[in-house]
Simulated assay, not measured.
Amino acid sequence: MIISRNGTSKDYGTSRIEIKQKTISWNEIDKSIEIMAQSVQDFNTESKHTYKISIPLSDITEIVRILGQDAVKKSASDLELALGEQSKALNRLVFAASGLVNNNVKIEPFKFKLPKPTSKVQ
């Protein structure tokens, strides 16, 4: 994750910090994704800070919309490489968004059984 900033009234260029070690988790109370990083170097000084970024469900919804519309059109192969191993998680999101799964319900694989033939075809 990279955080960038530049001045509003006086622009002295863009400052960037890269957050390499972070913890990403779901905050059930706030219904948000939380990103925590400790001992992150300040932009301009030697001091270090703890960052906590909360992404509310409304922003997550917008991120998913942008991924589904713009990113798929422009970077489908990159998405395949980045998300290919997350197909189960993506399917669970689709199931939840479709109302097919509720809290704490295990999603079982579909089991199809073919009916036994009732008569022989002649």
Rank of each mutant, 00 (worst) to 15 (best):
I2F: 12
I2H: 11
I3Q: 03
R5F: 08
R5C: 09
N6E: 10
T8K: 15
D11R: 13
G13P: 02
T14I: 11
S15F: 05
K20C: 04
Q21V: 02
T23V: 09
I24K: 03
I24V: 14
I24G: 04
I24H: 03
W26K: 03
W26D: 03
N27S: 08
I29Y: 03
I29C: 01
D30C: 00
D30A: 06
K31S: 09
S32W: 01
S32H: 08
E34T: 11
E34Q: 11
I35G: 03
M36W: 02
A37L: 01
Q38V: 15
S39V: 11
V40K: 02
Q41D: 10
F43I: 01
N44P: 00
N44F: 09
T45S: 15
H49K: 05
T50Y: 03
I53H: 04
L57T: 10
E62F: 09
V64C: 15
R65N: 05
R65M: 01
R65T: 06
I66M: 08
I66E: 10
L67A: 05
G68T: 10
Q69N: 14
A71F: 04
K73H: 04
S75A: 14
D78G: 14
E80S: 02
L83K: 07
L83G: 06
G84V: 04
S87E: 05
L90N: 03
N91W: 09
R92E: 15
L93Y: 06
V94I: 10
F95A: 13
F95L: 15
S98I: 00
S98R: 11
L100A: 08
V101G: 00
N102T: 08
E108R: 04
F110E: 14
K111L: 13
L114K: 12
L114I: 07
P115D: 02
K116V: 09
S119F: 10
S119C: 07
K120T: 07
V121N: 04
Q122W: 06
Q122K: 11
Q122R: 12
